[in-house]
Design a protein around this nucleic acid. Sequence first.
DNA 1: AACTCGGGGCA
DNA 2: TGCCCAGAGTT
Length: 212
Amino acid sequence: MERNKKEYAVRIIKILEEDYGHVKCALNFSSPFELLTAAILSAQCTDERVNKVTENLFKRYKSVEDYANADILELENYIKSAGFFRNKGKNIIKSAQMVINKYNGDVPQTMEELLELSGVARKTANVVLVSAFGKSEGIAVDTHVIRIANLLELTEYDDPVKIEKDLMKIVPKKYWINFSFMIQTLGRRICKARNPVHVFCSLNKICPLLQK
DNA sequence: AACTCGGGGCA
DNA sequence: TGCCCAGAGTT
């Protein structure tokens, strides 16, 4: 079963690479801490909306110190439209303080350390590792990945931790980074949670949903 | 395992 | 105007 699923996964990846092989992180940022901030904001929020928020946020706050010393109410005002802004504002400031106090101002580069930061769990940590540092200790699993991996019958159930473990067994390691980017892009643009655009889907020849 | 934490887009 | 989208933390 594992071998067949691996071959199936690679087939999917090869097809997706034709359309999405060049795709990178959808979040805008110009430093690791900006990416960390954007990634924290992206919880339960689309990347497009995060980019809208960070456009002004990144003009107002330039350094990790600026975030660590930020007035919570003022910062919250900048990030309101990303939703859950009271949690996220607190988390951004607390994470900035920890980056300064514990890591000398540099965003840490391991999963274990990133998970200690406020507002950072596995999905966000994976995003930071991949896009800020080009490292991957796992596969970023968001709702797009859950939906599409289940749809393609690569995985089952909806526990992101379990899905990530299963995908790490099925997807060859050299594809981990691109797999997330490509699936997320497909999920945002084509294979949406609602009203998927089957005609434009790269996978419409093999999608189990369309074979019945 | 179940709950809380908002706001924006679209019908 | 009400439904749906998108993760982390706490109990």
